[in-house]
Design a protein around this nucleic acid. Sequence first.
DNA 1: TTGTTAAGGTCTACGGCGTTGGCATAAGGA
DNA 2: TCCTTATGCCAACGCCGTAGACCTTAACAA
Lengths: 241, 241
Amino acid sequence: MPKKVVPETERRRRRPTRQGTVLSERLIVRTALRMLHEHGASGLTARRLGAALGADPSTLYRYFAGLDGLTRAIGEELMGRALDSWTPTGTWRADLRALGLAIHASYLAHPHAALLTASRVTGRPREIAVDETILGLLRGAGFDDADAVGVYHAFIDLALAFAALDAGALAIKDEVREADEEVWTSTYARLPAETHPHIAATAHLLAERMNLSAYPVVLDTLLGQAEARLTAAGNRGIGGQ
Amino acid sequence: MPKKVVPETERRRRRPTRQGTVLSERLIVRTALRMLHEHGASGLTARRLGAALGADPSTLYRYFAGLDGLTRAIGEELMGRALDSWTPTGTWRADLRALGLAIHASYLAHPHAALLTASRVTGRPREIAVDETILGLLRGAGFDDADAVGVYHAFIDLALAFAALDAGALAIKDEVREADEEVWTSTYARLPAETHPHIAATAHLLAERMNLSAYPVVLDTLLGQAEARLTAAGNRGIGGQ
DNA sequence: TTGTTAAGGTCTACGGCGTTGGCATAAGGA
DNA sequence: TCCTTATGCCAACGCCGTAGACCTTAACAA
């Protein structure tokens, strides 16, 4: 095994591979993302990634401590892209909404990558930047620390949870070619009304709706409750107790 | 390859394996669950499962069309257990809350299994039974079909999304031995206040809270909004438009 | 300009994986 | 009792992740 993984910042010698490519953490992560996107989760292997980069598979271990390390880097990249695509306006609720949707969208742009990474806490810089941003918005809006942390927790977990869930649906759609999606119009629509009256009665509505994400609705619900809590606290503060 | 997978219901000959075990879909699924629980996701392989059952790995393909089929059966089992552990009381909101928590808990009891299955729609009987139950509760409560389907969608996806997310945290905890959890008390707590003032100010609260699930809070938020919508619709109906 | 050093490539190999096709055998109906 | 065939086992294929030894050349000092 390569003796040690050298952090990207301390890398000095950039020897090109036999086939001429000059490697970097960034290039590897982006290539991996492309492979995930084009060929699905099973399309990303050390050997294939090596081939796509024009490098020997074992070279990857100079950059990451195993494929798990690569996975974390991919998650970091997705979170970073979400933050980059977001611009604050100064209204906390709108900003949080936009940021939530940005995270959700960033992950859904790479469903297979999202599935691999959505439940990991990496503690890497850009992920921390997102957390700091969210807490800043909440504390800036007037939430006290305990409430801010409460809303933050629900907010970030909700975004990641739905990212993972919806990514799962998308990823499967890619692979099983919409066979799963059809379950709603085939299996469910054909259930007899005697045994499943409620599904039978609502089958047409189900088929329409189940292929959309419930995330925006639930997110709005959460933010609405947070806002109500904030104004209630404000009134209590003004009115005394 | 074994020519065909015989459905459990049509299975007639129960030939014991060389080592004496009599196989069944149920036994295989439960053994797989146990292995997942005890040895993690990477501990479940066809070979090992075969060994645990006292059977040749290839025998599994007589029962499931590949490991993916086994995965779906596992998901079905988790959903079924949730439904079994739940008893309705007649109050729709309390019942939905209990059912949501039951699903969440059932999945979290087997985090590795949950991760494998939470984003799959199997269309198998017990999963359908859960859907029918939820829709029945909502329509029984007085929601019109469109609203019922809307709440149903948010409800089931929320349960599965948080099951997947929280299971991910638990599963990782098992493997990385709480290294990830420590991130909150080490990495985050040590961030300097100049660069990350908000994290620094709330670090102690974060460490406390991030290791609990946000699911109950978000679930209550969702159900509260649904109830408000229901009473609003009721008033409109009584008052005329 | 040249020599030294070690970062960062390559090569080879190991054990384990999912899955398959062929084959053996005994369960259960006739 | 015999026959059929469901259901088990065996052997093998082509992948996989990744460890360790080895080679080559970029970067730097003299």
